[in-house]
Nucleic acid binder design. Sequence first.
RNA 1: GCCGACUUAGCUCAGUGGUAGAGCACUCGCUUCACACGCGAUAGGUCACAAGUUCAAGUCUUGUAGUCGGCACCA
Length: 768
Amino acid sequence: WTRERFTMEESLSKGVREVFVRLYEEGWIYRGTRIVNWCPRDKTVLSDLEVKEEKAKDGKLYYLRYPVRRGEGETRGDGDFITVATTRPETMLGDTAVAVNPEDERYKNLIGSTINLPLTGRQIPIIADEYVESEFGTGAVKITPAHDPNDWEIGERHGLEKLVVMNDDATMNAAAGEDFNGLDRFAAREKVVEEFEKLGLLEKIEDYEVTLPHCERCKTVIEPLLSEQWFVKMDEMRDLALGLINEEGYPHFYPEVPHKKVYTTWLENLKDWTISRQLWWGHQIPAWYDKDGNVFVARAAEEAFEQAGTSELTQDQDVLDTWFSSALWPFSTLGWTGSGEGEKGREGERSSDLDVFYPTDVLVTGRDIIFLWVSRMVMTGMKFMGERPFDDVIIHGTVLDKNGQRMSKTKNNGIDPLDVFEKYGVDATRMALAGSATGVDFAWRDERVESFRNFANKIWNATRFCLMNADGTTNFSLSSGTTNFSLSDKWILSRLSKTSKAVNRALETYQFHEAVQLLYHFFWDDFCDWYIELKKDEITAGDQEATGLIVAILEQALRLLHPFMPFLTEELWQKLPGVSTGLHNPAYASAGQTIMLTSFPTGDDALIDEEAEREMSSVIELITKVRNVRAEMNIKSSDRLSIHVAADKQMQAVFAANDAQIKKLARADNIVLAESLEVPKASARAVLTGNAEIAVPLEGLIDFDKERARLNGQLEKLDVELQRLNGQLSNQNFVEKAPEEKVQELRDRKAEIESQQKTLTQNVEALN
RNA sequence: GCCGACUUAGCUCAGUGGUAGAGCACUCGCUUCACACGCGAUAGGUCACAAGUUCAAGUCUUGUAGUCGGCACCA
């Protein structure tokens, strides 16, 4: 927080003025009169990016007849009109020409003629311009250079007068004529149409689907208006950004599709950037004017006075587009002011933040500001730092409402994050969002946050359990007592290491949802549902070694979870016995004790134990099968069972070593291990992977029909899989062309299924 | 008009050419002493549609439909 920055503070403002002056001096910033996007309500100019196109409800196309003049002061006969079509009839008051395509046979003989422009008493020429498409409308276009960007360009080409007929609030001005002066643009539109009708010059009105530009902020229809503003020339800026992405591939977009292409295409078609705004809030433009209107661009008033040789100057009242200062963010926040302070690579100076941190690694943002912000940071970074501002850009999805609609104030379908925090907690919200960060838009679901609230509660309770018996436990380390590790210890350490490695891999490529899933399932399924349950007896009995180990594993898990659930994990970590600054990354050994400064676990290859994972799978499978028997046969949990297991010597040894844990979790009184089963007919049966078999004697409890149905259900499932395997294995092409490993894998699986089917079939027959 | 993405369980979404997954919801059972915000066991799929490539397609190619997004034009 010592580096908190705000673009309006002095240091950053200094950078803004520096950049403005330098770009002005190089001719990359200029002041000019152009057709701009004007919001008549906010009374400011807007950049193209702040204008949103929306379909108009009742668009109309008006066909207006302009009388063609025959001789001095008179028009031709009744039929001598040229008809133009327009969606904005009021702009005809500012027309200074009518244009037709030079090749259009209908109008060829009229080129060079003059029109008596109705309602104005003005006379305007008919000109020829390639821009006009003969097929569109009537093939004749009214030209209003001061109120339409395309018309303005035609006006430039033909040296037409640029007649401004509107005020800055979109009312008509005196140039529009006495009858229209002061009328709002839409009232003027109606009046123009009425007048044309009266004159018999309104040919027709057609319904017409039209999209209109709206002010992004206030939704008012934008008026294209001739206005003097400040612009950044984009030719060189665009080339800097295009060169970077085309030649060096920076920035890397995550996900690359579709953002890289959209970004590149936008750059290729870029027009100049309007940077002045008629607003109160912002960086005031560092330009001063003398009484004759001469411009002095300077870093400060004194510098302008010096240039002008007078202090009789007034500063430009306009401010800069907010994105102008934001465009400098990657270096202005690191101390760059252009004056040399804090800048890179200056010999003899101590290393500055700019030296250390620029270029940055990654920018995280939404796609709606790729053009507004990301592209401009790239441009100014290249221009003023000489290198890219960041390597990677993560574009995350947009949060939609529960119906998949974008949230908006007008629809009132937004959610208040503070309400969500209040209801489910900040950590749950954070993890729910991280778990949704796939780059794709996603619908907001309270239930999803709720599930992570439940997860947070799970972590809290698991920690509580570990701490209940941890009094006096101070010595914990994953490597302590290595020789005494039980199967479940080796298994959980292997799972922890694999999870750590996978989480790191996921984070390296910004797969946050993947990291969230890994951690959720490691903590809940592996650690809570299995490991804690397996170790419960040892821990509640006060086994110090077991407690030390479980605390060590918990401590690692909390570190892994910390970036996703910072408050909860810090709170719990502080409560763990034996935590100290000794666990910090060595660079922070002297800081106050906090989980924030511990190293992020990377996993330990030495702890990965495939054999332990295989053996543990067998134990889990055994317990699950017995639980299934219990559930399907409706055996009360208070009824203790006896479990008979037939397995090879190796598996017998595994089950024997975990006898106590199996009894506890399967709620059994004893386990009989042997090469083959010798049990009464009234037993429920199941098969395990690896040719093992179990039976649970249920004298007086078994329902033979139900057991038959249960076993047949399992047989059916196996049969479905077997059919598929047979299909593949009988395909000669598969056997010949698929990798040998894959073929062998299927053959092994087929053998496994056939063995299990054989056993299950015998079991069913034994029930008869 | 141009470009792009998406379409997988009831809902919201993951999914790396090789046995389709999660959370929530649903069904059944459980006062098992960390947690009912819980535990245990199930059920639920024509991976939008059609063709193609491949031994093998949710995954690659093409087309179609629908949904959404971006850009442009709009006399």
